[in-house]
Measured scan of single mutants.
Amino acid sequence: KNAAQIVDEALNQGITLFVADNRLQYETSRDNIPEELLNEWKYYRQDLIDFLQQLD
Rank of each mutant, 00 (worst) to 15 (best):
Q54Y: 10
T28C: 06
D8Q: 15
A3H: 02
E9L: 05
D50C: 09
L24N: 00
G14W: 05
D21W: 05
Q54I: 11
G14K: 04
Q53V: 13
L38Y: 07
D50S: 10
W41N: 00
D8I: 14
L17H: 02
N2I: 08
N32Q: 13
L48H: 00
L37D: 01
Q53H: 09
N12Q: 15
D47E: 15
Q13W: 13
E9W: 06
N12C: 12
G14D: 05
E9V: 04
D50Y: 10
E40D: 12
N39Y: 10
W41E: 01
A3R: 02
E40W: 04
K1F: 05
E35Q: 12
E9Q: 06
N12G: 11
R45M: 15
Q5T: 08
Q54K: 14
L24D: 00
L24T: 01
F51P: 00
E27D: 09
L38C: 09
L11E: 07
R23A: 13
L11N: 09
V19I: 08
F51S: 01
L52T: 00
K1G: 03
P34E: 05
S29Q: 12
L48P: 00
L38K: 08
D47T: 13
L52Y: 02
D21V: 05
D56C: 12
Y43N: 11
F51E: 02
K42I: 13
D31C: 11
V19K: 01
L38W: 07
Q25M: 15
L55D: 08
L38N: 03
D47F: 07
L48E: 00
Y26C: 09
A4W: 09
L37R: 03
T16D: 05
A10K: 00
E36F: 09
I33C: 02
Y26G: 02
N32E: 13
N39I: 12
Y43F: 11
N12E: 15
K1E: 02
Q53W: 06
P34A: 06
N12R: 15
D56Q: 15
Q46M: 08
R45G: 10
A20F: 12
G14T: 02
I33A: 03
Q13G: 06
A4S: 10
L55Y: 12
N39A: 13
N12P: 02
D47Q: 14
L17I: 06
E35M: 11
Q5L: 10
A10T: 02
L48Y: 00
N2H: 10
F18Q: 05
L24I: 07
L48K: 00
L11F: 12
I6L: 11
D56W: 05
L48G: 00
V7P: 00
E40T: 07
F18M: 06
N12W: 11
D21T: 03
A4F: 06
I6S: 01
Q53L: 14
N2C: 14
T28L: 03
Y44S: 04
W41Q: 00
Q5R: 12
T16F: 14
L11Q: 07
R30K: 08
A10G: 03
Y26R: 01
N2L: 11
